[in-house]
């Protein structure tokens, strides 16, 4: 066991020698497909994990920075390394199958006991004439329902969920950082991990918790120890941003709101213009990828910004038009 652990910690960075057991048909070039070009050269032995960690690059990978200078080694040495490489893989039966089997049994036991102890809910028969207060969506959608407090349904219920799904699918195509492929690291991809965890834990999971446990009748806020009072009245003192800054004319207000929203997205453009000559990352990213990242990022951040504006300044809408409000 100790043996295996050591090997795991210090993986040889040499290209995969056995193309046979795994057809490499799907593997494209890129930092993480080490199967090809095995015969070409052996990259020099990697420093201990935690330092640079260069993914073995094939010839096809465009890598402007210093390449992983392949150091030609005597054939004898390569053969010796290949041997350790093979030791490094274990038989699926029993090493993986055993764990899977035990985990599956454990999960089924927990599920069975849980199902014996806790009954699935069943309330009164459906009655379209009696609306419960509050009416809550299934728990996994309560983050979206909670967003309805801050945005109109067409944003919170349609546009944002759509962007979440599209944005998730786009991630691999806009994250061009070759590092951190196949192992846990925070240092090598701080931005990606921070943004993802913020979106997942803060904007998704915590809003679900709020919607599930802290919202009562009228979708008013109730602490867990408060009694749900259906007659609780929350003063509606929210005003639009344009009103807050003193604009009373509807037309001017909508121009102003549009300027604020468009100006917010222009921040992304301004950042690009300032940084494009200074940031290597930005240059590698290119303008198309950058636009997608900036748009999705700013849209995601619009939610916490709107929440804070609501809590501190009682802002209802940023931009009011005859057709839609944001």
């Amino acid at each position: 066991m100790a043996d295996e652990k050591d090997m795991q910690r210090e993986p040889p960075k040499e290209p995969q020698p056995d193309g046979a057991s795994k057809p490499a048909s799907g593997s494209k070039e890129g930092g993480e497909s080490p199967k090809k070009g095995a015969e070409a050269a052996t990259p020099k032995p990697t420093p201990p994990a935690g330092t640079v960690s260069k993914p073995s690059t094939t010839a096809t990978t465009a890598k402007p920075t210093a390449p992983a200078t392949p150091k030609p080694t005597p054939a004898g040495k390569t053969v010796a390394k290949k041997k350790t490489r093979l030791d490094y893989r274990v038989h699926t039966w029993p090493h993986l199958v055993r764990s899977e089997f035990l985990v599956a049994i454990g999960a089924l036991i927990v599920l069975t006991i849980w199902s014996i102890l806790v009954d699935a809910p069943l309330e009164d028969p459906a009655n379209p004439n009696r609306t419960p207060n509050p009416s809550k969506a299934p728990w996994y959608f309560l983050g979206l329902q909670e967003m309805l407090v801050y945005f109109d349904p067409w944003i919170a219920g349609v546009v944002l969920p759509g962007l979440i799904i599209m944005g998730l699918m786009i991630i691999p195509y806009v994250d061009i950082n070759p590092k951190g492929n196949g192992y846990y690291t925070f240092k090598e991809r701080k931005f990606a991990i921070t943004v993802f965890l913020f979106g997942f834990l803060v904007l998704w999971v915590s809003l679900i918790i709020v919607g599930t446990f802290l919202r009562g009748p009228g979708w008013n806020f109730f602490a867990p120890w408060d009694k749900w009072d259906p007659h609780k009245v929350a003063a509606l003192t929210n005003v639009n941003l344009s009103y807050k800054v003193g604009i009373r004319d509807d037309f001017i207000a909508s121009i102003f709101g549009g300027a604020v929203v468009i100006g917010y997205y222009l921040l992304g453009v301004i950042y690009y213009l300032i940084m494009r000559n200074r940031s290597e990352v930005l240059q590698k990213l290119g303008v198309v990828r950058y636009s997608i990242v900036a748009f999705l990022f700013l849209t995601m951040m619009a939610l916490p910004i709107k929440m804070i504006l609501r809590w501190t300044l009682n802002i209802k809408y940023i931009w009011v038009t005859p057709w839609f409000n944001i």
Binding site: P121, L122, E123, D124, P125, A126, N127, P128, R130, T131, P132, S135, K136, A137, P138, F141, L144, Q145, D152, P153, W154, A156, G157, V158, V159, F324
Partner: peptide
């Protein structure tokens, strides 16, 4: 088909009527 399910689905599907252009 109890109160829980019909109203949860009502809340969920009410979003669809706010779909831009199509709701």
């Amino acid at each position: 088909w109890d109160q829980l399910s019909i109203w949860a689905v009502t809340v969920g599907t009410n979003m669809a009527r706010a779909t831009p252009v199509l709701g």
